[in-house]
Every structure is written in structure tokens, then in C-alpha cells.
């Protein structure tokens, strides 16, 4: 589904990603871990098409298309979804109105008819159960005055509504208490299918107790320096990142 080859990206001339290679197939869950500043969020942003990052080298194909060639909105319409680490507030625009615009633009791109108000609301009702989100929250201005947990839950709710084929969760666990973490993870797990894939970007192993990855990758200094299964995450939890840093840094000096 997603194939990243030798991806290099920089911001304002400073290289952040220095040759990422990653293959994600339908039905898989990949976790991207790594210390602060290793490039995890940059990778998520580059895939979603945030324009302050400049791709200097490499290629990314998504369902056979050159992903980097697509505008951010077209990437979304093709099925890439980014759950933001810091969801943005849009005053005066209700989540419902926002999502209706989004869902219908995505449907239009895919050659589907726009959903009328009734159909849209019944779809919403169905998806609301997944993340135990309250109707009242969705009538409020998007993310405005939402608690950290509400924002993240709303992200996953949007994901449920848009039914993406590739979901990238950027530090979705940050700022969540244990109950919110459980609810959000439940939502993600229920949305999992053989046809879609998930990339979980996280600093801590905690989230991976709930969303169990098929593969774990460690990002350090803009490269994937170690890949493994979920046991790798446990090892990291126990030992921290220093041993990996040492391994990488000493290899570099040899």
C-alpha cells in the first residue's frame, strides 16, 4: 500500500529525514518509535503533505501513485489520514459542519454522490459509538475549548467518518489519561481491517499495549535504525533509547 524509498526531507535547509525506507501492506500496523527529535513527527507531516517540509530525495508511492506529487487535500481524498498531535481549533465551525464538508469533498473526488443531511447524520450516529463521543461535542466549534482527550477522540472520530486506507496516528497518546487512551485505542482497533493499514507514531510503549503493532521501527537521526516486532517496543520500554543511540553512533564513528 505504502512504499517509502530513501526519503530525505528538510525544514528551512536543515535535514531531518535522512533516508527512510519503509513498506506498509494492507492489514498491517506499524509503530514508529524513537527519542525526541528523531524525525517521527516530520515523517508523519511529510506523508500528509505539510509544505514547510521540503523533500530533497527519495520517493513515496501510495496505492501505486506518486504520493509526493499530490496536493495535501488529494492525499487525504486518496485515503491518507493524519491524526494530529495537536489538533487545530477552528472557531465558529462545528465539527459536524466541518466533517460534512470533508466527507462530501472526499466523496466527490471518488465519484460518489454527496451525502444529504439525513444520510450524513445517520453515518455520524453510527461512528459516534466507536469512540464514545457525545453529540454535544460535535455541535461545538471544532476543537475549541476541547480537553486534550476530547480533541484526540475527535481525531479518531474523524478517521472513522473518512474511512481512510492509511491512518497515521501522530503521538495520539500524548496528553491522554488511561481511560481516554483505552477509548481512543478501542476506536482505532475497531476500524482496523484487512484493507487498511495504520502507522502509529509514539514515544512510549504504553499505547502499543492497546494498539498492538505487527512491526516496530526505531527512528533515530532521521533513519530507521532498528526494526522488529512488538517485543522490540517492550525492550525499549525497559532499556530506553540510549543503547540504540550508542549502537548507531559508535557504528558511525568506525
Amino acid at each position: 500500500m505504502l512504499s517509502i524509498k530513501n526519503l530525505h526531507a528538510s525544514i528551512e535547509g536543515t535535514p531531518i529525514l535522512r533516508g527512510i525506507n519503509l513498506e506498509v501492506k494492507a492489514g498491517e500496523v506499524h509503530a514508529i518509535m524513537g527519542p525526541n527529535g528523531s524525525g517521527k513527527s516530520t515523517l508523519a507531516s511529510v506523508l500528509a503533505g505539510r509544505e514547510e517540509y521540503e523533500v530533497t530525495e527519495g520517493e513515496v508511492t501510495f496505492k501505486g501513485k506518486d504520493l509526493l506529487d499530490l496536493a495535501p487535500e488529494d492525499r487525504a481524498r486518496e485515503g491518507v489520514f493524519l491524526a494530529f498531535q495537536y489538533p487545530v481549533e477552528i472557531p465558529g465551525v462545528s465539527s459536524t459542519n466541518f466533517l460534512r464538508t470533508a466527507v462530501n469533498q472526499v466523496r466527490e473526488y471518488r465519484g460518489l454522490e454527496a451525502l444529504d443531511a439525513v444520510k450524513f447524520l445517520s453515518l455520524m450516529k453510527e461512528k459516534m459509538k466507536l469512540v464514545e463521543i457525545d453529540q454535544k461535542l460535535l455541535s461545538r466549534a471544532l476543537n475549541e475549548g476541547f480537553s486534550g482527550g476530547e480533541k484526540k477522540r475527535n481525531e479518531i472520530f474523524q478517521m472513522a467518518m473518512l474511512e481512510p486506507s492509511l491512518s497515521i496516528l501522530d503521538e495520539t497518546d500524548s496528553g491522554l489519561d488511561i481511560d481516554a487512551l483505552r477509548i481512543v485505542s478501542n476506536g482505532v482497533n475497531q476500524l482496523k481491517s484487512a484493507d487498511n493499514a495504520t502507522i502509529v507514531v509514539t514515544h512510549y510503549q504504553r499505547l502499543l499495549d492497546y494498539i498492538v503493532p505487527d512491526y516496530v521501527h526505531v527512528l533515530y537521526k532521521g533513519r530507521i535504525v532498528k526494526s522488529g516486532t512488538k517485543e522490540l517496543a517492550l525492550e525499549l520500554e525497559e532499556k530506553g533509547y540510549d543503547w540504540i543511540k550508542e549502537e548507531v553512533d559508535s557504528a558511525a564513528t568506525v
Binding site: 500528509a48 495535501p72 492525499r75 489520514f81 487545530v88 477552528i90 465558529g92 470533508a102
Partner: peptide, 28 residues
């Protein structure tokens, strides 16, 4: 903000529609 527009883009909303949405929300 660029952030607001990018957020809308990431949900499949074209930039012009994003601006319309944001401005109408502001003037609501």
C-alpha cells in the same frame, strides 16, 4: 493560520473551501 488550512486540507477540503469555512465560522 497555515495550520488551520493544512488541517482542513488533510481532511480532504480544498484550500478555497477551507478559507470559506474558516471565515464563515469567524463571522458566524
Amino acid at each position: 493560520g497555515e495550520d488551520q488550512i493544512f488541517y482542513c486540507n488533510q481532511r480532504g477540503i480544498a484550500t478555497e473551501d477551507a478559507v470559506a469555512l474558516i471565515v464563515n465560522g469567524y463571522a458566524k
